[in-house]
Every structure is written in structure tokens, then in C-alpha cells.
């Protein structure tokens, strides 16, 4: 298992962030993937608004202030469908 400096093992950091994002009532997101790389934390997934993405990044930065954070969290599109699925 890779460890970064004197910090906790990657798996525990990832687990703590995933639980933080789910259990913190200001976030309540279960669909964010967290990976702890040598370059820092990488967050991926999709949320329903830009405000939620910003809050996720704020919470993680607050908890792990010494980690660089890379975000690839998208906001899910809400356009009307252009095609239907035919189910005979």
C-alpha cells in the first residue's frame, strides 16, 4: 500500500472522504470517486449543480488542507431527449 509522507494509508484517506461526502448533510453525495495519488487527491463524478461541486471541493480542502486537489466533477446535463427508445 502506498503511503504519502507520514500521512495515513491511501485507502483510509479515500474511505474518510467518501464517508464525509455522503454523511455530511451539506453534501450528501454518494457518487463521487476519490483516488489518492502521489500528486494529491483526484475527485471524479457528477452532481446536480455547480454549487454542490464547489461545496465538495471546499469540504475536502478544509479536511485535507495540505493535499493538492484535482477535480473532474461534472454537472449533469438536463436537456430534453432528442431520441426515444422503441420497445415493441
Amino acid at each position: 500500500m502506498t503511503e504519502h509522507s507520514a500521512g495515513p494509508p491511501d485507502a483510509y484517506v479515500e474511505a474518510e472522504i467518501q464517508r464525509l461526502l455522503t454523511e455530511d448533510p451539506d453534501v450528501a453525495e454518494q457518487g463521487i470517486t476519490v483516488v489518492h495519488r502521489e500528486t494529491g487527491l483526484v475527485l471524479t463524478g457528477e452532481v446536480e449543480s455547480p454549487q454542490r461541486r464547489a461545496e465538495i471541493l471546499r469540504r475536502v480542502a478544509e479536511r485535507f488542507p495540505d493535499e493538492a486537489i484535482t477535480s473532474d466533477i461534472g454537472v449533469i446535463r438536463t436537456q430534453a431527449p432528442v431520441q426515444v427508445e422503441e420497445l415493441p
Partner: peptide
């Protein structure tokens, strides 16, 4: 919603 990536899907 994160799977269909649109406001809704339509099935006939």
C-alpha cells in the same frame, strides 16, 4: 439521471 445524462428518457 447521471446514467441517462438528460432530463428524462422516453420509451415507446
Amino acid at each position: 439521471h447521471p446514467v441517462i445524462k438528460q432530463a428524462y428518457s422516453v420509451f415507446h
